[in-house]
Write a protein that binds this DNA or RNA. Structure first.
Ligand SMILES: [Mn+2]
Ligand SMILES: [Mn+2]
Ligand SMILES: [Zn+2]
Ligand SMILES: [Zn+2]
Lengths: 155, 155
DNA sequence: TTCTTATTGCATCTTAGTTGCAATAAGAAT
DNA sequence: ATTCTTATTGCAACTAAGATGCAATAAGAA
Protein backbone atom coordinates (compact mmCIF):
# COMPACT_ATOMS: atom_id res chain seq x y z
CA UNK A 1 0.00 0.00 0.00
CA UNK A 2 1.74 3.13 -1.26
CA UNK A 3 2.19 6.32 0.72
CA UNK A 4 -0.51 8.26 -1.07
CA UNK A 5 -3.19 5.76 -0.13
CA UNK A 6 -4.69 7.94 2.59
CA UNK A 7 -4.78 11.01 0.40
CA UNK A 8 -6.40 9.20 -2.54
CA UNK A 9 -8.94 7.47 -0.36
CA UNK A 10 -9.86 10.70 1.33
CA UNK A 11 -10.25 12.43 -1.98
CA UNK A 12 -12.36 9.54 -3.28
CA UNK A 13 -14.67 9.63 -0.29
CA UNK A 14 -15.17 13.37 -0.65
CA UNK A 15 -15.92 13.02 -4.35
CA UNK A 16 -18.44 10.31 -3.67
CA UNK A 17 -20.11 12.24 -0.88
CA UNK A 18 -20.64 15.12 -3.29
CA UNK A 19 -21.81 12.73 -5.98
CA UNK A 20 -24.41 11.26 -3.63
CA UNK A 21 -25.67 14.68 -2.65
CA UNK A 22 -25.97 15.77 -6.26
CA UNK A 23 -27.83 12.62 -7.26
CA UNK A 24 -29.96 12.42 -4.11
CA UNK A 25 -28.41 9.10 -3.27
CA UNK A 26 -27.44 7.93 0.20
CA UNK A 27 -23.89 7.84 1.37
CA UNK A 28 -23.91 4.45 3.09
CA UNK A 29 -21.40 2.64 5.24
CA UNK A 30 -21.25 -0.14 2.67
CA UNK A 31 -20.27 2.21 -0.11
CA UNK A 32 -17.66 3.85 2.04
CA UNK A 33 -16.20 0.43 2.86
CA UNK A 34 -16.17 -0.38 -0.82
CA UNK A 35 -14.34 2.79 -1.78
CA UNK A 36 -11.72 2.22 0.88
CA UNK A 37 -11.12 -1.27 -0.48
CA UNK A 38 -10.98 0.14 -3.97
CA UNK A 39 -8.09 2.40 -3.13
CA UNK A 40 -6.39 -0.27 -1.11
CA UNK A 41 -6.12 -2.41 -4.25
CA UNK A 42 -3.28 -1.10 -6.34
CA UNK A 43 -3.39 -3.06 -9.57
CA UNK A 44 -6.11 -4.37 -11.85
CA UNK A 45 -8.83 -6.44 -10.27
CA UNK A 46 -12.11 -8.25 -10.85
CA UNK A 47 -15.23 -7.79 -8.74
CA UNK A 48 -14.40 -10.94 -6.86
CA UNK A 49 -10.97 -9.65 -5.83
CA UNK A 50 -12.62 -6.52 -4.55
CA UNK A 51 -15.12 -8.53 -2.53
CA UNK A 52 -12.41 -10.70 -1.01
CA UNK A 53 -10.40 -7.64 -0.05
CA UNK A 54 -13.44 -6.05 1.59
CA UNK A 55 -14.22 -9.19 3.56
CA UNK A 56 -10.67 -9.75 4.66
CA UNK A 57 -10.38 -6.21 6.01
CA UNK A 58 -13.86 -6.13 7.47
CA UNK A 59 -14.49 -9.60 8.88
CA UNK A 60 -17.52 -8.55 10.93
CA UNK A 61 -19.30 -6.42 8.33
CA UNK A 62 -20.91 -8.75 5.82
CA UNK A 63 -21.32 -6.87 2.60
CA UNK A 64 -23.21 -8.74 -0.12
CA UNK A 65 -21.86 -9.16 -3.60
CA UNK A 66 -25.17 -7.84 -4.88
CA UNK A 67 -24.46 -4.52 -3.23
CA UNK A 68 -21.05 -4.36 -4.81
CA UNK A 69 -22.45 -5.06 -8.24
CA UNK A 70 -25.10 -2.44 -7.70
CA UNK A 71 -22.61 0.18 -6.53
CA UNK A 72 -20.06 -0.25 -9.31
CA UNK A 73 -21.89 1.80 -11.95
CA UNK A 74 -22.16 4.70 -9.53
CA UNK A 75 -18.51 4.52 -8.58
CA UNK A 76 -17.61 4.55 -12.26
CA UNK A 77 -19.98 7.40 -12.98
CA UNK A 78 -18.46 9.34 -10.09
CA UNK A 79 -15.05 8.88 -11.69
CA UNK A 80 -13.47 6.70 -9.01
CA UNK A 81 -13.20 3.55 -11.05
CA UNK A 82 -12.93 2.39 -14.60
CA UNK A 83 -13.04 -0.75 -16.66
CA UNK A 84 -9.48 -1.15 -17.79
CA UNK A 85 -8.72 -4.19 -19.90
CA UNK A 86 -10.61 -5.83 -22.74
CA UNK A 87 -10.57 -9.40 -23.92
CA UNK A 88 -10.15 -11.16 -20.61
CA UNK A 89 -13.62 -12.63 -20.24
CA UNK A 90 -14.71 -11.13 -16.96
CA UNK A 91 -14.46 -7.41 -16.37
CA UNK A 92 -11.21 -5.99 -15.03
CA UNK A 93 -11.30 -2.71 -13.13
CA UNK A 94 -8.80 -0.30 -11.67
CA UNK A 95 -9.17 2.86 -9.62
CA UNK A 96 -8.51 6.17 -11.31
CA UNK A 97 -7.36 8.73 -8.73
CA UNK A 98 -3.60 9.06 -8.70
CA UNK A 99 -3.19 7.35 -12.07
CA UNK A 100 -3.06 9.21 -15.33
CA UNK A 101 -5.22 7.94 -18.17
CA UNK A 102 -3.46 5.00 -19.77
CA UNK A 103 -3.92 1.82 -21.79
CA UNK A 104 -2.72 -1.78 -21.72
CA UNK A 105 -0.82 -4.55 -23.41
CA UNK A 106 -1.85 -7.96 -22.13
CA UNK A 107 0.01 -11.23 -22.56
CA UNK A 108 -2.21 -14.10 -23.67
CA UNK A 109 0.17 -16.65 -22.22
CA UNK A 110 1.38 -15.44 -18.81
CA UNK A 111 -1.29 -12.81 -18.19
CA UNK A 112 1.23 -10.04 -17.61
CA UNK A 113 -0.11 -6.55 -18.14
CA UNK A 114 2.02 -3.68 -19.38
CA UNK A 115 0.60 -0.21 -19.01
CA UNK A 116 1.39 2.51 -21.49
CA UNK A 117 0.60 6.17 -21.60
CA UNK A 118 0.09 7.84 -24.95
CA UNK A 119 -1.31 11.37 -25.09
CA UNK A 120 -1.10 11.11 -28.88
CA UNK A 121 -3.39 8.12 -28.94
CA UNK A 122 -5.85 9.78 -26.58
CA UNK A 123 -5.67 12.90 -28.72
CA UNK A 124 -6.65 10.95 -31.82
CA UNK A 125 -9.62 9.44 -30.04
CA UNK A 126 -10.70 12.86 -28.82
CA UNK A 127 -10.44 14.28 -32.34
CA UNK A 128 -12.53 11.47 -33.78
CA UNK A 129 -15.19 11.89 -31.12
CA UNK A 130 -15.38 15.59 -31.84
CA UNK A 131 -15.74 14.93 -35.55
CA UNK A 132 -18.58 12.47 -34.92
CA UNK A 133 -20.17 14.75 -32.32
CA UNK A 134 -19.84 11.87 -29.92
CA UNK A 135 -19.70 12.47 -26.17
CA UNK A 136 -17.02 10.13 -24.81
CA UNK A 137 -17.64 8.60 -21.41
CA UNK A 138 -15.05 5.89 -21.18
CA UNK A 139 -12.32 4.64 -23.48
CA UNK A 140 -10.94 1.14 -23.48
CA UNK A 141 -7.93 0.19 -25.50
CA UNK A 142 -6.08 -3.09 -25.13
CA UNK A 143 -3.57 -4.92 -27.27
CA UNK A 144 -3.62 -8.64 -26.58
CA UNK A 145 -0.60 -10.64 -27.63
CA UNK A 146 2.62 -12.12 -26.30
CA UNK A 147 5.08 -10.38 -24.02
CA UNK A 148 8.82 -10.31 -24.56
CA UNK A 149 9.36 -13.37 -22.42
CA UNK A 150 6.52 -15.43 -23.85
CA UNK A 151 6.65 -14.70 -27.55
CA UNK A 152 9.32 -17.28 -28.38
CA UNK A 153 7.37 -20.12 -26.81
CA UNK A 154 4.07 -18.87 -28.24
CA UNK A 155 3.78 -20.90 -31.44
CA UNK B 1 -25.96 -9.52 -48.42
CA UNK B 2 -23.49 -7.54 -50.47
CA UNK B 3 -22.11 -8.50 -53.85
CA UNK B 4 -18.74 -9.59 -52.58
CA UNK B 5 -20.23 -12.20 -50.27
CA UNK B 6 -19.35 -15.10 -52.52
CA UNK B 7 -15.80 -13.94 -53.01
CA UNK B 8 -15.18 -13.35 -49.32
CA UNK B 9 -16.73 -16.66 -48.30
CA UNK B 10 -14.69 -18.50 -50.86
CA UNK B 11 -11.53 -16.85 -49.70
CA UNK B 12 -12.41 -17.62 -46.08
CA UNK B 13 -13.02 -21.29 -46.82
CA UNK B 14 -9.71 -21.58 -48.63
CA UNK B 15 -7.86 -19.88 -45.80
CA UNK B 16 -9.45 -22.21 -43.29
CA UNK B 17 -8.70 -25.30 -45.33
CA UNK B 18 -5.05 -24.34 -45.36
CA UNK B 19 -5.17 -23.54 -41.67
CA UNK B 20 -6.57 -26.98 -40.90
CA UNK B 21 -3.93 -28.69 -42.95
CA UNK B 22 -1.14 -26.75 -41.26
CA UNK B 23 -2.49 -27.49 -37.79
CA UNK B 24 -3.46 -31.10 -38.53
CA UNK B 25 -7.05 -30.29 -37.80
CA UNK B 26 -10.05 -31.61 -39.67
CA UNK B 27 -11.98 -29.53 -42.12
CA UNK B 28 -15.49 -30.48 -41.08
CA UNK B 29 -18.90 -29.76 -42.53
CA UNK B 30 -19.86 -27.98 -39.33
CA UNK B 31 -16.95 -25.58 -39.57
CA UNK B 32 -17.69 -24.89 -43.20
CA UNK B 33 -21.29 -24.12 -42.33
CA UNK B 34 -20.10 -21.82 -39.59
CA UNK B 35 -17.79 -19.88 -41.87
CA UNK B 36 -20.50 -19.41 -44.45
CA UNK B 37 -22.79 -17.99 -41.77
CA UNK B 38 -19.97 -15.79 -40.57
CA UNK B 39 -19.65 -14.11 -43.93
CA UNK B 40 -23.39 -13.91 -44.36
CA UNK B 41 -23.58 -11.71 -41.26
CA UNK B 42 -22.51 -8.22 -42.20
CA UNK B 43 -22.39 -6.25 -38.97
CA UNK B 44 -21.32 -6.96 -35.43
CA UNK B 45 -22.76 -10.01 -33.76
CA UNK B 46 -22.74 -12.18 -30.65
CA UNK B 47 -22.31 -15.94 -30.66
CA UNK B 48 -26.03 -16.34 -30.28
CA UNK B 49 -26.75 -14.31 -33.42
CA UNK B 50 -24.35 -16.51 -35.32
CA UNK B 51 -26.05 -19.64 -34.05
CA UNK B 52 -29.48 -18.37 -34.99
CA UNK B 53 -28.27 -17.49 -38.47
CA UNK B 54 -26.77 -20.93 -38.91
CA UNK B 55 -29.96 -22.67 -37.81
CA UNK B 56 -32.22 -20.51 -39.92
CA UNK B 57 -30.20 -21.23 -43.06
CA UNK B 58 -29.63 -24.89 -42.25
CA UNK B 59 -32.85 -26.15 -40.67
CA UNK B 60 -31.96 -29.82 -41.07
CA UNK B 61 -28.36 -29.70 -39.89
CA UNK B 62 -28.34 -29.36 -36.12
CA UNK B 63 -25.10 -27.77 -35.12
CA UNK B 64 -24.55 -27.51 -31.38
CA UNK B 65 -23.62 -24.29 -29.67
CA UNK B 66 -20.75 -26.15 -28.03
CA UNK B 67 -19.20 -26.72 -31.43
CA UNK B 68 -19.51 -23.07 -32.29
CA UNK B 69 -17.84 -22.03 -29.07
CA UNK B 70 -15.09 -24.55 -29.67
CA UNK B 71 -14.51 -23.40 -33.22
CA UNK B 72 -14.36 -19.67 -32.55
CA UNK B 73 -10.77 -19.55 -31.29
CA UNK B 74 -9.60 -21.35 -34.41
CA UNK B 75 -11.51 -19.05 -36.70
CA UNK B 76 -9.98 -16.08 -34.93
CA UNK B 77 -6.54 -17.60 -35.06
CA UNK B 78 -6.99 -18.24 -38.76
CA UNK B 79 -7.75 -14.55 -39.20
CA UNK B 80 -11.39 -14.86 -40.30
CA UNK B 81 -12.96 -13.30 -37.25
CA UNK B 82 -12.18 -10.86 -34.50
CA UNK B 83 -13.59 -9.59 -31.26
CA UNK B 84 -14.60 -6.07 -32.10
CA UNK B 85 -16.22 -4.07 -29.32
CA UNK B 86 -15.38 -3.77 -25.64
CA UNK B 87 -17.62 -2.88 -22.74
CA UNK B 88 -20.82 -4.55 -23.87
CA UNK B 89 -20.89 -7.47 -21.47
CA UNK B 90 -20.99 -10.37 -23.85
CA UNK B 91 -18.45 -10.66 -26.63
CA UNK B 92 -19.16 -8.98 -29.95
CA UNK B 93 -17.52 -10.31 -33.08
CA UNK B 94 -17.23 -9.32 -36.70
CA UNK B 95 -15.65 -10.97 -39.68
CA UNK B 96 -12.43 -9.53 -41.03
CA UNK B 97 -12.11 -10.29 -44.75
CA UNK B 98 -13.22 -7.35 -46.84
CA UNK B 99 -13.03 -4.91 -43.95
CA UNK B 100 -9.97 -2.85 -43.16
CA UNK B 101 -8.79 -2.76 -39.58
CA UNK B 102 -10.94 -0.29 -37.67
CA UNK B 103 -12.26 0.70 -34.26
CA UNK B 104 -15.55 1.70 -32.68
CA UNK B 105 -17.56 4.32 -30.90
CA UNK B 106 -20.52 2.83 -29.07
CA UNK B 107 -23.56 4.67 -27.71
CA UNK B 108 -24.46 3.69 -24.17
CA UNK B 109 -28.05 4.76 -24.66
CA UNK B 110 -29.23 3.58 -28.10
CA UNK B 111 -26.51 1.01 -28.75
CA UNK B 112 -25.54 2.55 -32.08
CA UNK B 113 -22.05 1.71 -33.23
CA UNK B 114 -19.93 4.05 -35.31
CA UNK B 115 -16.88 2.60 -36.96
CA UNK B 116 -13.78 4.67 -37.52
CA UNK B 117 -10.55 4.01 -39.32
CA UNK B 118 -7.38 5.60 -38.06
CA UNK B 119 -4.01 4.47 -39.43
CA UNK B 120 -2.39 6.98 -37.06
CA UNK B 121 -3.91 5.29 -34.04
CA UNK B 122 -2.92 1.87 -35.26
CA UNK B 123 0.57 3.22 -35.96
CA UNK B 124 0.93 4.41 -32.39
CA UNK B 125 -0.09 1.03 -31.06
CA UNK B 126 2.38 -0.67 -33.36
CA UNK B 127 5.17 1.63 -32.23
CA UNK B 128 4.40 0.97 -28.56
CA UNK B 129 4.39 -2.77 -29.12
CA UNK B 130 7.74 -2.61 -30.86
CA UNK B 131 9.20 -0.57 -28.00
CA UNK B 132 7.96 -3.12 -25.45
CA UNK B 133 9.04 -6.06 -27.64
CA UNK B 134 5.46 -7.16 -27.51
CA UNK B 135 4.01 -9.40 -30.23
CA UNK B 136 0.51 -8.04 -30.96
CA UNK B 137 -2.17 -10.58 -31.80
CA UNK B 138 -5.37 -8.59 -31.56
CA UNK B 139 -6.18 -4.98 -30.75
CA UNK B 140 -9.43 -3.78 -29.30
CA UNK B 141 -10.24 -0.14 -29.00
CA UNK B 142 -13.66 1.20 -28.12
CA UNK B 143 -14.94 4.55 -26.95
CA UNK B 144 -18.21 4.20 -25.06
CA UNK B 145 -20.33 7.29 -24.69
CA UNK B 146 -23.32 9.05 -26.21
CA UNK B 147 -23.97 9.53 -29.89
CA UNK B 148 -24.98 12.81 -31.46
CA UNK B 149 -28.66 12.02 -31.17
CA UNK B 150 -28.55 10.72 -27.61
CA UNK B 151 -26.15 13.08 -25.87
CA UNK B 152 -28.75 15.78 -25.12
CA UNK B 153 -31.07 13.38 -23.32
CA UNK B 154 -28.18 11.62 -21.57
CA UNK B 155 -28.12 13.43 -18.19
C1' DT C 1 -37.48 11.31 17.45
C1' DT C 2 -40.21 10.35 13.62
C1' DC C 3 -40.93 9.38 8.92
C1' DT C 4 -39.95 8.62 4.13
C1' DT C 5 -37.72 5.99 0.88
C1' DA C 6 -33.12 4.56 -0.94
C1' DT C 7 -30.34 0.73 -0.06
C1' DT C 8 -29.15 -3.62 1.74
C1' DG C 9 -28.92 -8.89 2.16
C1' DC C 10 -30.69 -12.96 0.87
C1' DA C 11 -32.42 -16.20 -2.21
C1' DT C 12 -33.33 -17.11 -6.68
C1' DC C 13 -32.80 -16.70 -11.48
C1' DT C 14 -30.57 -15.96 -15.99
C1' DT C 15 -27.39 -16.54 -19.36
C1' DA C 16 -22.56 -16.95 -21.42
C1' DG C 17 -19.40 -20.08 -21.76
C1' DT C 18 -17.04 -24.73 -20.31
C1' DT C 19 -16.32 -29.72 -19.68
C1' DG C 20 -16.64 -34.96 -19.78
C1' DC C 21 -17.90 -38.53 -22.51
C1' DA C 22 -19.77 -41.76 -25.77
C1' DA C 23 -20.98 -41.58 -30.72
C1' DT C 24 -19.57 -39.94 -35.19
C1' DA C 25 -16.95 -38.90 -39.20
C1' DA C 26 -12.49 -36.82 -41.42
C1' DG C 27 -9.02 -38.41 -43.98
C1' DA C 28 -4.75 -41.20 -44.07
C1' DA C 29 -3.28 -45.83 -44.79
C1' DT C 30 -4.24 -50.09 -46.74
C1' DA D 1 -13.37 -49.27 -51.81
C1' DT D 2 -12.43 -50.69 -46.84
C1' DT D 3 -10.31 -50.22 -42.63
C1' DC D 4 -8.44 -47.69 -38.97
C1' DT D 5 -7.02 -43.87 -36.12
C1' DT D 6 -8.27 -40.05 -33.66
C1' DA D 7 -10.14 -35.24 -34.05
C1' DT D 8 -14.57 -33.51 -33.64
C1' DT D 9 -19.29 -33.54 -32.64
C1' DG D 10 -23.79 -33.39 -29.78
C1' DC D 11 -25.67 -33.82 -25.57
C1' DA D 12 -26.25 -33.05 -20.89
C1' DA D 13 -24.57 -31.36 -16.92
C1' DC D 14 -21.89 -27.86 -14.90
C1' DT D 15 -19.62 -23.19 -13.61
C1' DA D 16 -19.52 -18.51 -12.77
C1' DA D 17 -20.82 -13.59 -13.67
C1' DG D 18 -24.14 -10.75 -13.03
C1' DA D 19 -29.21 -9.40 -12.47
C1' DT D 20 -33.67 -9.24 -9.99
C1' DG D 21 -37.75 -9.35 -6.54
C1' DC D 22 -38.72 -8.51 -2.01
C1' DA D 23 -38.94 -7.86 2.89
C1' DA D 24 -35.90 -5.80 6.39
C1' DT D 25 -32.83 -1.99 7.37
C1' DA D 26 -30.92 2.50 7.86
C1' DA D 27 -29.74 7.25 5.69
C1' DG D 28 -30.93 11.68 6.50
C1' DA D 29 -34.56 15.23 6.11
C1' DA D 30 -38.28 17.01 8.77
MN1 LIG E 1 -3.88 0.02 -15.68
MN1 LIG F 1 -16.73 -2.99 -36.90
ZN1 LIG G 1 3.89 -13.31 -21.13
ZN1 LIG H 1 -27.31 6.88 -29.24
Amino acid sequence: MPGNYLKETDQALTIFKDYCKKKQMRYTLERETMIKALYRLEGHFAVDDLLRNIRRHNPKARIAKTSVYRALPFLMDAGLLRESIAGVGSIVYEHTLGHRDHDHLRCLRCGKIVEFYSPDLIGIQTRICRKEQFLAVRRINTVNGYCRLCKDTAG
